[in-house]
Amino acid sequence: MKLSEFRLAVDDEFGEAYGAVVLRDVVLEVLGGRTATEALSAGVAPREVWLALCVAMDVPTARRHGPTRRERGPRA
């Protein structure tokens, strides 16, 4: 999972405004008691942070894969 995909997943699951709060305020014990923002800054893989957030926020298993891939236009 790329960081851009992580951000899409957070926005899709929590909404843009609440997602920012979740990233900043939810402490993830499995990531050393850091917030998602702190964990990403420390170099933890976005996929690992995403899964830790899903567990902490009780995201249903069916939605833990992230948002459905969006159609992309042709590359230049």
Rank of each mutant, 00 (worst) to 15 (best):
residue 1 M to V: 08
residue 1 M to H: 04
residue 4 S to Y: 01
residue 5 E to R: 15
residue 6 F to V: 08
residue 7 R to Q: 13
residue 7 R to G: 06
residue 7 R to S: 12
residue 7 R to L: 12
residue 7 R to Y: 08
residue 8 L to R: 08
residue 8 L to S: 07
residue 9 A to T: 04
residue 11 D to K: 06
residue 11 D to G: 11
residue 12 D to C: 11
residue 13 E to C: 13
residue 13 E to N: 07
residue 14 F to L: 11
residue 15 G to V: 02
residue 15 G to W: 02
residue 15 G to Q: 00
residue 16 E to T: 11
residue 16 E to S: 13
residue 17 A to D: 12
residue 17 A to Q: 12
residue 17 A to N: 10
residue 18 Y to D: 09
residue 20 A to L: 02
residue 21 V to M: 10
residue 21 V to R: 08
residue 21 V to L: 12
residue 22 V to Q: 05
residue 22 V to N: 04
residue 23 L to A: 01
residue 24 R to P: 12
residue 25 D to L: 13
residue 25 D to H: 11
residue 26 V to L: 11
residue 27 V to Q: 03
residue 27 V to E: 01
residue 28 L to N: 04
residue 28 L to I: 06
residue 28 L to C: 09
residue 29 E to Q: 15
residue 29 E to I: 12
residue 30 V to I: 02
residue 31 L to E: 05
residue 31 L to G: 10
residue 33 G to K: 03
residue 34 R to F: 10
residue 34 R to I: 13
residue 35 T to P: 06
residue 35 T to C: 04
residue 36 A to T: 04
residue 36 A to D: 02
residue 37 T to A: 14
residue 38 E to I: 02
residue 38 E to L: 04
residue 38 E to V: 03
residue 41 S to A: 14
residue 42 A to N: 04
residue 44 V to N: 01
residue 44 V to E: 05
residue 47 R to Q: 14
residue 47 R to Y: 10
residue 49 V to E: 02
residue 49 V to Q: 03
residue 50 W to V: 02
residue 50 W to T: 03
residue 51 L to I: 10
residue 51 L to C: 09
residue 52 A to T: 01
residue 52 A to M: 03
residue 52 A to S: 08
residue 54 C to F: 00
residue 54 C to R: 01
residue 54 C to E: 01
residue 54 C to L: 01
residue 56 A to I: 01
residue 56 A to H: 01
residue 60 P to A: 15
residue 63 R to L: 15
residue 63 R to T: 08
residue 64 R to W: 07
residue 65 H to R: 14
residue 65 H to K: 13
residue 66 G to W: 02
residue 66 G to C: 06
residue 67 P to D: 05
residue 68 T to L: 12
residue 69 R to M: 11
residue 69 R to N: 09
residue 70 R to W: 05
residue 72 R to S: 14
residue 72 R to V: 13
residue 73 G to I: 09
residue 73 G to H: 07
residue 73 G to V: 11
residue 74 P to K: 10
residue 75 R to Y: 12
residue 75 R to F: 13
residue 75 R to E: 15
residue 75 R to K: 13
residue 75 R to P: 15
